[in-house]
């Protein structure tokens, strides 16, 4: 049944995919160029001589990959979900048909996962072209990016289904997503942070996603920490899914 809900989002996506593909990875590519190449030149030629033994661009690229997975997923889980609840009301149309709340949630989440997979693939190809990633292990960053997307999308679904306007989303972007983007190891190792903040950073799902992507791309990842990161992200997916189902029921089944 969830595939029927998914097919709606696909029909809707067919109209806009070109635009969304460009905007979806243009932003990360700009970051990669400005930070990785522009700022990276200073880092690599300075006293640091790169980060963790590699060039700054090589260090940065997997971080941006994880961060753009987060951003794509969060963006796709805010306004589209609220719109389907409140404005365009697609969810109501689905519920009038034989679909149930779990079908709505799963069908839409699978679509978000697909969107993340597409932008991540595009971005990964660019990083290869930039020479920022050269290992075949980096192919595994794609499933990690999708997992990262779901770890954010599921709880944001739960939040979005409870909103009445864009106010909550602005708070989410400003006070949660943006700080996470900047301080969860995307641009510099979290060891640079004060000890207390380092712990905060390590609780965020993005840090685990960045560690996984970077470890795979740099071929430094080992099995046990990898499983730990995956398990932590899965925990967010599971808890988020549970919350999303509850939120959707509360909002749509009256």
């Amino acid at each position: 049944m969830w595939a029927r809900a998914f097919s709606y989002w696909m029909a809707s996506y067919r109209r806009i995919w070109r635009g969304s593909l460009v905007s979806g990875f243009l932003n990360p590519v700009l970051f990669l160029a400005a930070m990785g190449i522009g700022l990276g030149a200073l880092v690599d030629n300075g006293s640091a001589g790169g980060v963790q033994g590699v060039t700054y661009l090589t260090f940065l690229a997997p971080g941006i990959l994880a961060a753009q997975a987060m951003q794509t997923a969060v963006f796709e889980s805010t306004f589209p979900v609220l719109g389907a609840v409140k404005w365009q009301r697609q969810y109501h149309a689905m519920l009038a048909a034989p679909l149930g709340v779990p079908d709505l949630v799963v069908g839409h989440l699978v679509f978000v996962a697909m969107r993340v997979a597409i932008t991540s693939t595009a971005f990964l190809l660019i990083t290869v072209a930039f020479g920022a990633i050269g290992s075949w292990w980096a192919v595994l960053t794609l499933p990690v990016a999708v997992l990262t997307g779901l770890a954010f999308a599921a709880p944001v679904f739960a939040l979005a289904a409870r909103q009445d306007g864009p106010g909550g989303f602005n708070m989410l972007f400003r006070f949660i997503i943006m700080p996470m983007f900047l301080f969860s190891g995307t641009f510099f190792p979290v060891e640079q942070l004060p000890a207390a903040l380092e712990l905060v950073a390590m609780v965020t799902p993005l840090w685990h996603a960045v560690e996984l992507c970077r470890g795979l791309a740099l071929e430094t990842m080992t099995m046990v920490p990898a499983l730990g990161h995956v398990a932590y992200l899965l925990l967010w997916v599971g808890a988020g899914l549970w919350l999303a189902l509850a939120s959707f029921r509360k909002r749509l089944v009256l």
Binding site: Y8, S12, H92, M94, A97
Partner: peptide
């Protein structure tokens, strides 16, 4: 509860898939 960005026909096609 129409999808106003889709065409008239697409709205029926999508709904039929449900």
């Amino acid at each position: 509860t129409l999808d106003e960005e889709l065409t008239v026909r697409e709205n029926i096609l999508v709904y039929g898939r449900y």
